[in-house]
Nucleic acid binder design. Structure first.
Length: 459
RNA sequence: GCGCCUAUAGCUCAAUGGCAGAGCGCUUGAUUGUGGAUCAAGAGGUUACGGGUUCGAGCCCCGUUAGGCGCCCCA
């Protein structure tokens, strides 16, 4: 074999410095905000036992889990006795961060505080077909609160997510910003109930209804019938969809009336009212939009559900909800929980499309110390170290090259300032400071350079 | 997982079945202490991979791989 394929595996990516810096810019904002909301970090393995993962995400989800084959003798044995896709694997890559959290809570219940507020920012894996903004390895940025059924929990995680997006520059709930669609599993069940849809068809009907904004009213109707929902029920559902008041403030009242006869529906409406009212004190308020037909795919949600919508982006930018029974799947004792997740890749995609990255990212070098010749090399190193001691990010040009090449290198790396220290400057005890953005060059005493640069760069 | 489309220089793309090209970028020089502009020169290709048809294939056919769009689903 003469050559290896040097591309990353399908659906995964390499991040060269510019991309890596952009990612860490966003990740830094997320982590800082999450900590400010009182969440603490948690780390879990990328690999989990297969039975930890299976059965938590619905049928579709199970199929998208990356399986990890057994090893050694166990694999041999499995291969010998009628191997199947199921029998040769005993582990898998995590599909999200919520199920690992539930496992952690079940395992360490006694060591965790009464209310466990954790954030986890980590890659997850899905054996999905890659597409725009969609990868097989991608980062999720989760906050969750375990141990309380209070709607204050929903309000907290929604506020944290909204705060992050605002600090990244997403303002308002129009084209420049984002919306958080809000619904409740109880509301969905109520809607099905009043439409007379039997329990076994609920899931199928929800999938159809969830596609409303994609395929339109007629599309949903066709799909409902196709999925076996009766004419009467379909008509009732379609009437509900058509009747949703466009006015946000009237929507809750309308929904309450519609679901009055359904116990689950009424409980859902009441829950949403609480979430909305507690959210009104925080940054999520202007972005929240009640959407009675938002479904979301994951099967473990039990209460409120939410999803981030960026105008112009197909697919969501994040989401979450309440899952009061998930921890119980791992232990005898069940614990209520609710969380919210930001999709890093989607956020980066929108920031890129809208040109929202800062010109200079934290982490990039700010200053290049140039070199003149062998006789000034020591002085250049002294200067570089002094600036570093003053907190600046300083690169030293390694070779003795002509200035043109050194400036070009600095420009390529988007470094703003080049420092010149040749025999001329040394003799006069000054440093040449060239602003590569404007081309202007000034001279100043060496001792003043770091303060001057810090001032310039802080603007 | 299914359907359709695409694959040529680092990038964007040309080339009727008949000599593999342009723009941008890159390197070098015009410039012996100064990047971007201009000018000149230069490097860079197994036309994704494997097979087939043909006197002759970048072009036609089959397969593989990778990418794009739609479906399914999803952050």
């Amino acid at each position: 074999m003469a050559r290896f394929n040097t591309k990353p595996i399908s659906g995964a990516r390499d991040f060269l410095p510019v991309d890596a810096l952009r990612r860490s810019y966003v990740l830094d904002v997320i982590e800082r905000v999450y900590q400010r909301y009182g969440f603490e970090p948690l780390e879990t393995p990328a690999m989990e036992r297969l039975d930890t993962l299976l059965g938590k995400y619905g049928e579709e989800g199970d199929q998208l889990i990356f399986r990890v084959a057994k090893r050694g003798d166990k694999l041999q044995r499995a291969l010998e006795e009628n191997p199947t896709e199921e029998s040769i694997a005993d582990a898998g890559l995590r599909y999200d961060l919520t199920v690992p959290l539930a496992r952690i809570v079940a395992e360490y219940r006694n060591e965790l505080p009464r209310y466990f507020k954790r954030y986890q920012i980590a890659p997850v894996y899905r054996a999905d077909r890659p597409a725009k903004g969609r990868y097989r390895e991608f980062y999720q940025c989760d906050v969750d609160i375990v141990g309380s059924t209070s709607p204050a929990v929903e309000a907290e995680v929604l506020a944290a997510g909204a705060q992050v997006l605002q600090e990244l520059g997403f303002q308002g709930n129009d084209e420049s910003g984002f919306a958080i669609r809000l619904n409740h599993r109880g509301v969905l069940r109520g809607l099905m109930e009043v439409a007379g849809i039997p329990a076994e068809l609920e899931g199928a009907a929800l999938v159809a209804v969830d596609k409303l904004d994609k395929i339109g009213l007629a599309g949903v109707q066709a799909e409902l019938v196709e999925r076996g929902v009766s004419q009467g029920s379909t008509a009732a559902l379609m009437r509900s969809i058509a009747d949703v008041p466009g006015n946000e403030s009237e929507r809750m009242g309308w929904l309450g009336d519609l679901l009055e006869s359904s116990e689950q529906g009424s409980r859902g409406v009441a829950g949403l009212k609480d979430v909305l009212s507690l959210s009104s004190y925080g940054p999520a308020a202007p972005h929240l939009r009640l959407d009675p037909f938002l479904a979301r795919g994951l099967s473990y949600y039990t209460g409120a559900i939410f999803e981030i919508e960026f105008p112009g982006l197909s697919g969501s930018g994040g989401g979450g909800g309440r899952y009061d029974d998930l921890v119980g799947m791992f232990s005898n004792q069940t614990l209520p929980a609710c969380g919210f997740s930001l999709g890093l890749e989607r956020i980066l995609l929108i920031l890129e499309e809208r040109g929202m990255f800062p010109d200079h990212l934290a982490g990039q070098p700010q200053v290049l110390v140039t070199q003149f010749d062998a006789s000034t090399q020591g002085a250049s190193l002294v200067l570089a170290h002094r600036l570093r001691a003053a907190g600046l990010r300083v690169d030293l040009y390694p070779d003795l090259d002509r200035y043109g090449r050194q400036f070009k290198y600095a420009e390529d790396r988007k470094i703003s300032f080049a420092l010149l220290l040749g025999p001329d400057e040394l003799a006069r005890l000054v440093v040449g400071v060239k602003d590569l953005r404007s081309g202007e060059q000034v001279e100043m005493e060496a001792s003043l350079v770091s303060n001057w640069l810090n001032e310039q760069l802080s603007v």
